[in-house]
Design a protein around this nucleic acid. Structure first.
Lengths: 356, 356
DNA sequence: CTGAAAGCGCTTACAG
DNA sequence: CTGAAAGCGCTTACAG
């Protein structure tokens, strides 16, 4: 490891001077010295250690990338293509702006606290945290943070969040199904496990809770369905269990209902694709007998047959947005809005067919 | 930020003493003091800053996770479920052992050098680096490293690598296709872009190069095909272009050949699934008319219809192995073997049918 | 134009 | 049993 000291000795100057040219405080140094030192710096590929900088009271330039869930659909969260793409976007952008990304398994709050303070991270990107969880973390850790896909029960956000237009997405989905001849289409979403002390419990004690995002998607869906008059009952919002086996049994059970509705909107591509396969395995044809619309436009939406019609979200854009907001906060800006969202648009492929 | 100093003042002792109880050097401290200090430590959720540790000549406990390719199949590399799962495994294991993971976009060698020295990382996990590229990096950076899926042209490895049994996987694939009645099956793999100065160029100047891993998979495939006598010509090793459009044209062009062979082995699930869809879109039935075997067993292999028969590799196991080897090196062990591999097994699903 | 010195928050060998 | 002091590799306000 080559030190500032070493460079100074080679150049026959003090550490101060080397440090000065390193940081471009070059007005107080003669051009000759600057050139000489720069050359030596280059030749030795000198790179300042970051440890001392942190000691010397500079920021760490580390961004913690925290995944709120360890597992999604039974796989490690980082394996999910959504998280992967988000991480890629954040990491890329961070690299451009001279920040570093440390991955933090967000399963345990303790761990987040530990890493965040030990490394004195400049800020946190928190993925898929619930509002309650964030507030709890917040109480114990005073760091800049931007959340991705956190939803609030209140009218207004009082923390930074990057999300998508869930309502709009649901609306587009609903409109399209309606237009294609499915005024009785169902909206299906997977149940979300909620921490015992989440406020969310109040919301729907009557029925399994599918998460705030799906709640909004459903609202949009419902509004679209009612846009030509008529009423879209809450009974058309189907919440299916988290366990894959149980979910399958549920699908089995509601098969007649599915066939009658003829059109299905989903809270995620994952479940939509699963349904396509479920139907396929029973000899039911999509989209001939049942039309299906997904949500997210994951990598595999184009890969399934029939190719999935789905509400597209731009994950990379979200990642960049999240990082940029965080960076600006770190660098001292005060951001006016608390909530920004990435627009959303229906991508039409082959999984919906006009009802004859 | 609460400092060691602060704790010391609260306890009315010196920093030394606090540091000592922090590190369990407790034999020289009275039990009473220990208890008192511990209590204060707890109450204030004190966590030592890591910056000074690095200064004080301790390791950083940072592991750099470097992806050799920025994009795979046209998507950001971290989005690839393989990379994602690997990262999850490494990160998880690192967390258990008290290490931290920093993500480094491996596109530029410069960047790797920069981060590795600035942060004084303890070691590097390098994913999908070519041998030449690794050696070049190695020349400029003296860090412990474990590679994942790097292949060598030499007989022996002289660097740490964690891989899979490509030959064995190819062999299992070939045996199965042979057994199911496809003695003329083809092996199809995607071309690999090779850096201009890779030695690999010597290997196959005659024909596009599909990567060393596929070379080994093909060798296994070929050996299996020849296991009952007969000869498996190199012409059955089909290297298809990297560009998706060009690849499609190629498939189009070789359709008669495909139908005649009736059985296809692939270098990756990605291409296998692509082929299934390609055939599906032309009304050709898999596995009735063409049988397909993939390689890797990615998340979506179970998701396609027909479900993909493929050679399974345990990515999580690989990640853990890679991290553990690195950790042992960091902690001073000398590892006897240079190469370890994760075994591999054929997972039979629905994409192959016995030839009638 | 250049450098000596103090400071960042930690550890550790050593003295009492 | 406890603490004063030197050291890690950097930055920066200040003196010359």
């Amino acid at each position: 490891m080559i030190r500032l000291q070493d460079i100074a000795e080679m150049a026959g100057v003090s550490r101060t001077t080397v440090s000065n040219v390193l940081h471009g405080n070059t007005k107080k140094v003669s051009q000759a010295t600057v050139d000489r030192i720069k050359k030596i710096l280059e030749e030795n590929e000198y790179r300042p250690n970051t440890g001392p900088l942190m000691s010397a009271g500079k920021g760490s330039r580390i961004i913690g990338f925290v995944t709120g869930y360890d597992y999604t659909h039974g796989y490690p969260a980082t394996m999910d293509s959504f998280i992967g793409e988000l991480l890629a976007a954040v990491q890329n952008q961070a690299e451009k702006k001279g920040y570093y990304v440390m991955v933090i398994g967000g399963g345990s709050e303790e761990r987040v606290l530990e890493i965040a303070s030990q490394w004195n991270v400049d800020g946190l990107v928190l993925i898929g945290y619930s509002e309650g969880r964030y507030r709890r973390l917040r109480r114990r850790l005073n760091k800049k943070a931007v959340l991705v896909d956190t939803y609030t029960l209140k009218q207004e956000y009082d923390y930074q969040n990057v999300g998508i237009d869930d309502y709009g997405g649901g609306f587009q989905m609903g409109s399209y199904l309606l237009e294609m001849g499915y005024p009785e289409a169902l909206f299906i979403a997977e149940e979300t496990r909620v921490l015992p002390n989440e406020e969310v419990h109040k919301l729907r004690s009557d029925k399994a809770f599918a998460g705030l995002c799906n709640e909004k998607r459903w609202q949009g869906f419902k509004a679209a369905m009612e846009s030509r008059g008529g009423f879209c009952s809450i009974r058309r919002f189907i919440v299916v269990p988290q366990d894959a086996q149980a979910r399958k049994r549920r699908y089995e059970h509601m098969l007649p209902q599915i066939l009658e509705a003829g059109g299905l909107g989903f809270g995620s591509d994952y479940n939509a694709i699963e349904m396509i396969n479920f139907l396929h395995d029973r000899g039911i044809q999509v989209p001939k007998q049942v039309s299906v619309v997904g949500f997210d436009d994951c990598v595999y939406a184009e890969y399934v047959r029939p190719r999935l019609t789905t509400v597209h979200q731009d994950v990379t854009a979200k990642g960049i947005m999240a990082f940029e907001r965080l960076r600006r906060m770190i660098e001292g800006e005060t951001l006016p809005e608390m909530y920004v969202f990435d627009p959303v648009r229906l991508t039409i492929r082959d999984s919906v067919q006009r009802r004859s």
